[in-house]
Design a binder for these strands. Sequence first.
RNA 1: GCUGUGGUGGUGUAGGGGUUAGCACGGCAGAUUGUGGUUCUGCCAGCCCGGGUUCAAUUCCCGGCCACGGCCCCA
Length: 447
Amino acid sequence: MVQRPRGTRDFTPSAMRRRLALEHLLEDVAVRHGFSRVQTPVFESLDLFTAKSGPGVIKQLYAFQDKGERHLTLRPELTAPVMRMVAEELRNETKPLRLSYFGQCYRYEEFKTGRYREFFQYGVELIGASGPMAEAEVIALAINMLTDVGLTDWEIRIGHVGVLKDALVGLGLSSEVNPAAGEAPVASAMRLLDKGDDAGLAALFVANGLDSTHAQSLRDLAALEGGMETLGPARTILSGMDGVSLEALDELELTLKAVGYLAAKPPRLAVDLTVARGLDYYTGMVFEVKVPEMGGEGQVLGGGSYKLLHLFGLPDLDPCCGFGLGFDRVLLALEAQAMATERKEVVAGEVDPRPLLAIVPFRVNSLDVLQLVGGLRASGVRVELELRGRKVGKALGWADSIGCTHAMVIGPHELEEKKGRIKNLSTGEQTLTGLYADDVLEALTER
RNA sequence: GCUGUGGUGGUGUAGGGGUUAGCACGGCAGAUUGUGGUUCUGCCAGCCCGGGUUCAAUUCCCGGCCACGGCCCCA
């Protein structure tokens, strides 16, 4: 038996109902925030991703050559393709652009719960506007999405890479890439701060000829925890460091204030200046959302301000702001939470509340009921047609087991009398009705 | 990349060197031939793959594949 490839999943009808419901909820929020959906190819030129993330990414890509020997790859993420699309198709559109997207991405890596080789990402990008208001719009969208989707108990951590970066540069650390280390000392320091590796940080300072006591202030900064009230102490610490600008901190404060007006109140909000997102193209505000019960794979959303469009000859549009949402992880979190709270519907809207009517032709030519079936469907009614010639008893069982709310058996009597009965499968009640779509529609919607 | 545990019908499981491989759910059909979700009966369907040990392997051993976890990593 041929099995599906490792790290991929099949989605059955019931799984898809849930996934579609979630996608619709997300899209609905995005639309209310002015975002429009776009779609890009599942495969792209390999260069697109090496340009963004360096040649090191190739080992995690599903890269291949086509018959024309073009170097291609399945997309590992969606930000770069969307940027490419902006440069290729949307240069002349009125800015800013508010784009949303949803689709499969592929990474060749070990998979586990919440981490697959084929995974789904929902995301948005706000292109052609930057600064605290633009950033607040994006954060607010993220918060409102998670709220509307019904996720609870999550934490959003918001930071600004500029705060630490300015401090590090101000202290004299170089932002030039050190060929030996493969990254800039500033980037190394950010990473070490993010991980809380104090010893490594001190070593880095010494290696770069800096007094490691400066590291102490940074650690204090990194150790700050809490909501907006942490901005005060942060300001105090930064003010005590020579040559360090407060601009980034001011921006962050403004962003946070704006978010307070634009978004629902998140379950937990933390200001965390060490949110580094591990990516060097992030330039300003950065944020991420974690769900505690999911452990190591608990990050369900991440984003921030970044500069990528200069790679496509559009430096004027940098920086942009956006986020990616781990669709599969959000779903897993929702399922875990639904299980814990015994909530019936995991995703609101996954169960279609409209009636589902089973039409059962019994000992008649099926052709004689098709006009009714077609007419009802044209009127918007969900109709199942019994196709296996079951007898009445079996047919009702069939209708019930596939979730029909009503059933209508149409046999010789019904055709002769031009009357039928709609049976409500949960109450057992039967309603007499004619055999035209309008009659049935009326009888169906009466109750 | 490292590491732990496990793989028996579609699902959940029992068993175990030689068995008609058991049970439950499910699906299909029937119970004097037009109204279900109860019951009864029958049927459908399984030992992950390859190699080794053995007279004999689904069972023991090795490898692979797959699944579920813990690290590393994560654009």
